[in-house]
Each structure stands twice: as structure tokens, then as C-alpha cells.
């Protein structure tokens, strides 16, 4: 800071004007952007405490704040049930995914076997498909196996659908770790299973944590899959429930929707802000495929 002040004193008048203009430019950008980010956020939080129920009456700063919307949310809708459904899907999905993907990543990163090249190219191509591309077939499968309208059936699709992407992610992560430990263990006569559990698994811990978080988060805001595969109200997940709350033609549910949104988006946003560095490095690693 002191440095800048000193520099400013030395400046010629022209540079001084430029410097002031730069200040104005930078801060006006920051202020405009911040307002456009914060205004909708404040508005929706304010709306959730609004005494009225319609969109027209919702204001950013309610005059008589009330918790009524939150109470109505639990009494008049199946919000709690949606929440629990989603929580169980998310938890099981997280566990299944980590188990499946950990071994896949290890196998494709460290082992040599016939068909590896073919396998890698296959999963590379597979991850380019949006998951509902094969939805009709999945629908027919599930219909025949009696899995339709089962929240846990979603787990199968979530975890299987992300295998290709996550395998590449872990493979890329392991590539940057030296194989000397594995080799030493192999010379000492360790089996592949021992090498995996004792050596590679601890190394993979950070990237597996990333996989766990993203797989846990996925079901909370996925709308397409459950809208296809779940039909009864008490088995819905949160995303479908929230969407239908707001999309029903009556204009009377708005503040209740606001309450529901704040209740689920709040914790998520806080979590993301805390884990931002960790999540961003994981995301860019995945995009780089390196």
C-alpha cells in the first residue's frame, strides 16, 4: 500500500488521471457485478420470510418477517420425505460410486492387460453422451425388472453414468504419482489386491473425496432422471418436488418455494464456498483429462 502511495507521488499528472480512471473502472465493474449477483439472492431469501404467499407480494426486505412459509412447507407438502429420499439416494450413490470408481481408476492407471486401449476409448466415448440419451431403453429395462418408481434405482444410473468420467479423473490423478512404491511392494511379493488397499488407496484419498462430494451432490438437483423414472409423490426427490411446487399453475406457492430453496441451497452454497479451492482443482483436472 505504502509503495503505491509513494509511486503516486512520483507520477506525472497524465498518469495520475489514468490511475484514477483505472480505480473508477475497476470499482464500478466490481460494484455492478456484485449488485447483479446479490440482488436476486437477497430477494429470494427475503421472499422466504414474506407473510404473503404470491409472487407479486414477495419483497426483498419483508416488513413483517415470518417463519410461516417454512412451517407450511413441512405441513402442507412432502418436503421432509423428499429430503430424506434424496439424502438416502445421495448417500448410497456416494458409497457405491467410490467403491466402483476407485478400483476402475487403479486398474486403468496402473495395470497392463489385453483390451485396455479399447476399454479406455470406449469409456471416453461413453462419457460424451448425456445420461438421458438412453433413457427410453432404461425405462423399458426398469419396467421389466420392476425397478420403476424406486428411488434407489436412481443410484444405479447415477453411479454407472459417472463411471467413465471419474475413471479418467482418477487415472489422470494417479499418473502424476510415481509408481516406485507399487514396484517395491511387488518385488516384496505383495499381491495386486494388497498393493491396491495398502498403497494406492491412501494415495487416491484426495481425489476419491472429490468424487464422493460430487456424487453426493448430484442427486439433489438432478431433475431429468427422477422426472422420468419416479411418478408417485412420496417417492419424489427434492429437485422434482421443488420444480412442481413452483411450476403448478396457481401463483400461491411462491414464498413456500422460496423457503424450500433457501433451506436446501443455503447449506450447499456454504459447503461449496468452504471447499472452493479443493473443488475447483478437481473440476479443472477433470476437464483437462491430464
Amino acid at each position: 500500500m505504502g509503495n503505491i502511495k509513494k509511486m503516486r507521488k512520483k507520477m506525472r499528472p497524465v498518469d495520475r488521471v489514468k490511475d484514477i480512471l483505472a480505480y473508477i473502472g475497476i470499482y464500478s465493474i466490481l460494484i455492478v457485478v456484485s449488485i447483479s449477483i446479490l440482488y436476486p439472492v437477497i430477494w429470494i431469501v427475503g421472499s422466504s420470510f414474506n407473510p404473503g404467499s404470491s409472487l407479486a407480494s414477495a419483497t426483498s426486505i419483508p416488513k413483517n418477517p415470518t417463519l410461516n412459509n417454512f412451517i407450511r412447507l413441512f405441513e402442507e407438502t412432502d418436503y421432509k420425505r423428499w429430503y430424506l429420499n434424496t439424502l438416502s439416494v445421495a448417500t448410497v450413490n456416494m458409497i457405491v460410486s467410490v467403491l466402483l470408481v476407485g478400483t476402475m481408476g487403479y486398474v486403468f492407471a496402473r495395470l497392463k492387460f489385453a483390451g485396455k486401449k479399447f476399454g479406455l476409448l470406449t469409456i471416453l466415448i461413453l462419457q460424451m453422451f448425456p445420461s438421458f440419451m438412453g433413457m427410453i431403453a432404461i425405462y423399458v429395462f426398469f419396467l421389466n425388472f420392476g425397478l420403476l418408481n424406486q428411488p434407489l434405482a436412481l443410484v444405479i444410473i447415477y453411479s454407472a453414468g459417472q463411471i467413465p468420467y471419474n475413471t479418467w479423473l482418477i487415472k489422470g490423478y494417479l499418473k502424476n504419482v510415481s509408481t516406485s512404491l507399487d514396484e517395491a511392494a511387488q518385488i516384496d511379493g505383495a499381491t495386486k489386491l494388497q498393493i491396491y488397499t495398502k498403497i494406492v488407496l491412501p494415495i487416491m484419498f484426495p481425489i476419491l473425496t472429490f468424487v464422493a462430494i460430487t456424487q453426493f451432490m448430484a442427486p439433489w438437483f438432478d431433475y431429468i432422471l427422477p422426472s422420468f423414472l419416479i411418478s408417485s409423490t412420496e417417492k419424489k426427490t427434492l429437485a422434482v418436488g421443488l420444480y412442481e411446487l413452483i411450476n403448478s399453475q396457481t401463483n400461491t406457492n411462491f414464498t413456500m418455494f422460496a423457503a424450500g430453496s433457501v433451506l436446501v441451497a443455503g447449506p450447499v452454497a456454504i459447503l461449496y464456498l468452504f471447499l472452493q479451492k479443493f473443488l475447483i482443482s478437481g473440476l479443472s483436472a477433470g476437464a483437462n483429462k491430464e
Binding site: 466402483l100 470408481v101 478400483t103 476402475m104 470406449t122 469409456i123 461413453l126 453422451f129 440419451m133 438412453g134 433413457m135 427410453i136 431403453a137 432404461i138 423399458v140 429395462f141 444405479i156 444410473i157 453411479s159 454407472a160 453414468g161 463411471i163 467413465p164 475413471t167
Partner: peptide
């Protein structure tokens, strides 16, 4: 993982 992918990704995509 491969069997799961077969039924949830590969077969549906071929079907599609």
C-alpha cells in the same frame, strides 16, 4: 463396474 456400464450406458445407447 463394467457390467453396470454395459446395462446402464452401452446397451441403452445402442438401443437408442
Amino acid at each position: 463396474a463394467l457390467i453396470l456400464m454395459l446395462f446402464v450406458s452401452i446397451l441403452p445407447i445402442i438401443f437408442s
